[in-house]
Nucleic acid binder design. Structure first.
Lengths: 331, 331
DNA sequence: ATGAAAGCGCTAACAT
DNA sequence: ATGTTAGCGCTTTCAT
């Protein structure tokens, strides 16, 4: 077996409680003794067993992070930022992927529950009820979700969508498609809430099209609807979908932006690689990752801290949007 | 606090050891009692504390997975496949990202060590010595690395590179650049070993260019060298680098594939989105993820199992490679 | 400043 | 088939 606190105690001629104190409350132990213990520990390669100490203290110094799809380029920057922040604050981040499955999501949180101090849930797909049940079992922070009583980091995605639609209308588009996301997605609901709240009575008509799988494949399917319904512009649920739409459109011989303008959300790296380059709403995912870690750690200290952090988004105009064509069907 | 085995024992009127058995060895407990215990457990919402049981059994049913950069699209399919396989085999996968830093890599493995049954190390950057030291502390399986005494999953990346260079030579290229990867990368060494072993004496001359950061940014830097040294074809360390090279080349007014042919490695999703579409060597990352999990679990049962799994790669010819130009400098 | 003892939640002999 | 006991590696009173 590995080296335990007992081995260190023996090697340095003190009681195990002194060894323990050397690591958890160094000021309580004589400088000389401390040196001896530390020397023995490093000699033997001793590493405290966090699982064992967690059993007593109730703190593991681990944080769980659950995302729907690690393959969605939106998440890695968030994950890396959270990981960095966690490390700064002496915590270890465990990442888990749910494959867009709410069942797996719940399972994953439960499995994490006893092994972490809390779980960061990014864009959770489960219902509010289940979320509330889970928060009894483990501290939770949600990203891009608004649940009463839960600390949350929210990106102002509705506002971003509004700006995007305004951009489209300024270009003369009056038949605009809104590619909605998966059921259960707060971001998708939020986009619809703001966009339809703002524009339903205006001159430009926005048509909801969805739900769509939040993937390139989902976008290709959506492209067929875009062509069929004859809108001249589309705001997609995210960049992945937008990229799929552009692919689908290209295959159907529809030109972007001459025939149809396309806007995405997230500003993932590929959005600069497509031809034309994608106009998109950039979301501050790294900031969100850091904020989520901070919020979790804050809620540890103050059990009923339920702060909400709101982060701004920004429209990045590139080449996939342009003026509506003179004789466009929707015009 | 959460509900413990003691609460369940009390609620169902049995001793805690019976409750324990109900979960770990159901056949040893009377069907009727079992029902009662299970009922009480689900009533109370009891979940065994894996950390606590791990302390005794030495098995946590957790697996750690360490990658250099979760933002490299090569990894997500591997991670997802490993996660799926782990779930099938009743294990939970913890993912960690090292940010390409060997120090962090080692730290991360150590932090995982006591909380998992073993760690899957993908493309580790640390030295063999450190790797060998670590394997004393925790079971290890390496992916894309060849360390004596360690179970490993290796993609036949050298062979893939050889095929790619042959493809280039068949197109008439005789001045071929080889964009090498980061120091410490087995894949990069492997590519060089095979390519230079095979082609150093042939008519076509292959020039090593590197090391390069395994990112798009690294590729942009490499593009400048490609232009400066006047090669007519380049095999990049991976697709991300290849994409960066194409971007850099485009900005410098160099056409792909008319002026320079570019080949990547990995076949990540973006490689189908670039214009021209990228010719690349596809690596079976999902299969590697599954194999790594299987190997780890096998090595648990048979302490000195050190199997090596080798996976085939395949050249995917798309549009970024073409015949060498008639008057090319390198010709 | 250090040691002794109890116990975190659980499993695994060993009894019965 | 079930209960008793010891103990995994560690922290934390409580003594001294």
């Amino acid at each position: 077996m590995a080296v335990t606190i007992r081995d260190v105690a023996q090697a340095s001629g003190v009681h195990i409680s002194t060894v323990s104190r050397t690591f958890t409350a160094p000021h309580l132990v004589n400088a000389e003794t401390r040196e001896r213990v530390l020397a023995a520990a490093s000699e033997l390669g001793y590493r405290p067993n966090r699982a064992a100490s967690g059993l007593i203290t109730g703190r593991t110094n681990n944080i769980g992070l659950v995302v729907a799809d690690i393959a969605n380029p939106f998440f890695p920057p968030l994950i890396k930022a959270a990981e960095g922040r966690a490390r700064e604050r002496d915590h270890l981040l465990f990442v888990g992927d749910t494959d867009e499955d709410p069942e797996v999501e719940e399972e994953l949180v439960r499995a994490f529950a006893k092994q972490v101090d809390g779980v960061l849930l990014c864009g959770p797909r489960m219902t509010d009820e289940r979320l509330k049940a889970l928060m009894q079992e483990v501290s939770l922070v949600v990203v891009n979700r608004d649940v009463k009583g839960l600390p949350a980091v929210m990106m102002d995605i509705g506002e971003g969508a509004r700006t995007a639609v305004e951009h489209l209308r300024a270009l003369g588009h009056t038949a605009i498609g809104l590619g909605t996301g998966p059921r259960g997605s707060w971001a998708s609901r939020e986009i619809q809430r703001v966009v339809f709240g703002q524009f339903e009575d205006g001159p430009g008509q926005v048509t909801a099209m969805g739900p769509n799988a939040p993937t390139e494949e989902g976008g290709r399917a959506l492209a067929r609807r875009v062509v069929a319904e004859g809108v001249t512009a589309l705001l997609a649920y995210n960049d992945l979908v937008a990229v799929g739409v552009m692919e689908g459109l290209a295959e159907a011989g529809v030109r972007v932006p001459e025939d149809v303008s396309v806007v995405g959300i997230d500003d993932i790296p590929v959005s600069r690689l497509t031809r034309p380059k994608l106009t998109t709403v950039s979301t501050p995912s790294a900031a969100a990752g850091r904020a989520a870690v901070d919020l979790l750690l804050a809620s540890q200290d103050d059990r009923n801290a339920t702060a909400q952090v709101r982060l701004r988004t920004e429209l990045i105009v590139r080449d996939s949007t342009g003026p509506v064509a003179a004789g466009a069907r929707g015009g």
